[in-house]
Design a protein around this nucleic acid. Structure first.
Lengths: 111, 111
DNA sequence: AGATTATATATCGTGTTACGATGTATACGC
DNA sequence: GCGTATACATCGTAACACGATATATAATCT
């Protein structure tokens, strides 16, 4: 089963910031980490993640730096900022509140 | 805290179908039920729910019928169809898979 | 040799969606 | 008279994920 595009919309930022709270990573690497960690449920495309990374950097949640490679395309690493960590905490908070609320509604009867 | 618009996007259909799997309801009533059940976390506007109900009916997940009122605007009740029940089960399935996957990713480290 | 796949970045167009704003109409309390 | 509640409807907007496309190198498969 593929997860619907619309479901993804609320959590992509959270997923990315969460990865980067562990260590600096580059876009292509984040895609794979999310894929692995989610047990192949999430398979973000490149056209999805790069614009998000750009956006997050512009908003001050991330900072980037290039690392030159030989025989491979250069890698653009992202580092989470203090502001990004705050954002992540907010997002996780909201996520918990949100999932709890949805479950409260759909568990009206025994599903 | 208000839940972000984008987070809502994946679950509105599920919430509505879930309400209607209990009993026939009209739009205005669904808004309040969701508000109550979610403990005021969700407060859908009318401009949100009516288009969704129309869409779901067009897609064959719901059927509607009017009930005349005296001294009040008439009420348009919605009844979930067999197809709607299947849809609800699919959505709940996807929801569980989705939340589990997100938690797998964000629990990489102790959050 | 040629094609595909993997690595790694970037951007553009498209479709979907929730939501506020606006409109219609009745009734009740201040 | 004015706001609020009940109950429906529609329109425009902004945000977003995603596929498609482009670029470039290297390894693997046919």
């Amino acid at each position: 089963m593929k997860i619907s595009k619309e479901l993804m919309k609320g959590s992509t930022v959270q997923l990315i910031l969460s990865c980067l709270s562990d260590e600096d990573m580059y876009g292509y690497q984040i895609i794979k980490k999310i894929k692995t960690k989610s047990k192949n449920i999430f398979n973000m495309g490149e056209g999805t993640i790069y614009p998000i990374l750009h956006r997050l950097e512009k908003q001050g949640f991330l900072k980037s730096y290039w690392e030159k490679q030989i025989g491979l395309p250069d890698k653009k690493y992202y580092k989470i900022t203090e502001k990004g960590i705050s954002k992540l905490h907010e997002e996780i908070n909201e996520w918990k509140k949100y999932t709890k609320a949805v479950n409260n509604v759909i568990n009206m009867k025994s599903v």
